[in-house]
Design a protein around this nucleic acid. Structure first.
Lengths: 136, 136
DNA sequence: GTAGCGGCTGGAGCGCACTCCAGGTCAAGA
DNA sequence: TCTTGACCTGGAGTGCGCTCCAGCCGCTAC
């Protein structure tokens, strides 16, 4: 598979794929006769997983570290598991924090709705100029 | 309150506070006789709320837009509510995606644990070199 | 044979969100 | 009076994660 096709199938740009190779997130692939990158389709699974790690807030440095361990093979299983466990914990905390903020947004949206309809609101929670003081 | 104290109480650096003022996230405060910024303690509530918006993924451009509307006062309530509703939706989607990834991490952590203990794993889910293929 | 396309490399540039710095002012305490 | 420390401004620098570019090569189709 050439880089253009991998780009289409992975959703990453050609430039990003080459960048990922440069920084060590993906292995340098085989080259065809003309010196072009020729990827094994299995790389798609790895790229997807990298996308998950990224989407869940893992920075590029730690992703590179994980990729290095993966290259080392089965001997790095324990260390990889530990990284994933720490990351799992970080995700859980993020979800918790987001849930709290979601509730806050709901309260604030509700307050705004009541202010828009001219309903009385606890003056401790909003001043007349719309410079809301609470629920922040 | 001087900028140093606000920095300590808000958790933002002095530089960040001046930067936030420059880009329009916080209002230019009054100045004391010596030309130093003299903040109203109420600003802490606003800074906290800005922190929430940021922590939930709102970029600086949109935060600045929200801050502008807030300065306009009560007339911008509807537009602010609409922004918050859209943002609320984005947070809910983020939580959903994170929850899925969390489940994936759990599966993968479990798989690694079984591989470490030498337990048999479905060969479709892991190859011998530790180059796991599935759960990605 | 030549035009077009996709790919190659090395390196520069970019947007975000700060962070740091030089060179200065000002107020309060020893 | 002198020193210390907090604060001031404008502007440069940083790290992340790409993104773009110039200039080149090689395959395929016309």
């Amino acid at each position: 598979m050439q880089i253009g096709e991998l780009s289409r199938r992975s959703g990453l740009s050609v430039d990003t794929l080459r960048y990922y190779e440069k920084v060590g997130l993906i292995e340098p692939p085989a080259r065809d006769g003309g010196g072009r990158r020729d990827y094994d389709p299995d790389i798609l699974r790895w790229i997807d997983f990298l996308g998950r790690l990224k989407a869940t807030g893992m920075g590029i440095g730690e992703r590179v570290r994980y990729a290095e361990l993966r290259r080392e093979g089965a001997g790095s299983l324990t260390e990889r598991r530990e990284i994933l466990e720490a990351h799992r914990q970080a995700i859980a905390e993020r979800i918790e924090a987001l849930q709290q903020s979601l509730d806050l947004m709901d309260d604030k949206i509700d307050l705004y709705g009541r202010m828009e309809r001219g309903e009385p609101v606890d003056p401790a929670f909003a001043d007349c100029a719309g410079q809301e003081r609470a629920l922040t």
